[in-house]
Amino acid sequence: MNERIPTEGPASAREARLRAQLLSGLAGRAADYEQFLREMSAHLRAFLRRRLARHPDDVEDLVQETLLALHNQRHTYDPAQPLTAWAQAIARYKLVDWLRRRGGRQDVALDLDDGYELLLAVDDEAAEARRDLGLLLARLPDGQRRPIQLTKLEGLSVSEASAAIGMSESAIKVAVHRGLKALARLIREEP
């Protein structure tokens, strides 16, 4: 399957750059990782918008859900594997899952999924999301919400957050991870 991944042209340069950013992020460098997520969201938007032509108002929600999925599942990326294959499989999975939750696969151009095209198109025009993830975050239990708030919204380091709320550093990391997984579940359980 990998031979269908473009080996030259703009997509392959993007593949190399985004892959380097992701690997840097997995090693803990926030700036590269944020750049990865931002660029990826533009590719996801283009990818999903093409497939949800009849649901334009839902595209941004699904972009965000997929971005969260890329983050929560980032430990499953194998550096020996093309980034495009990994990210597109997640995007496609989240798209199909979203459709199933809405009770049908009609109206959607899933047949566009022959090749690895995720990185070919860019769409920077973020629409307003219909669902506010901030509100969903607020519904998490305190033990998860506080660590996320301190480290991810207020920008405290893990050790500062640990001192602030009296949890061990590893407990903070676990709580952040579980909290974001719980956030993904809350999204899926929404009506």
């Binding site: 971005l67 980032r74 973020a126 901030g134 991810k152 405290l156």
Partner: peptide, 15 residues
């Protein structure tokens, strides 16, 4: 929450 804010949120803290 805007998508760029989400990207920033996800990238901060323990990653």
């Amino acid at each position: 929450m805007k998508t760029d804010e989400l990207a920033r949120l996800l990238a901060r803290g323990p990653i």
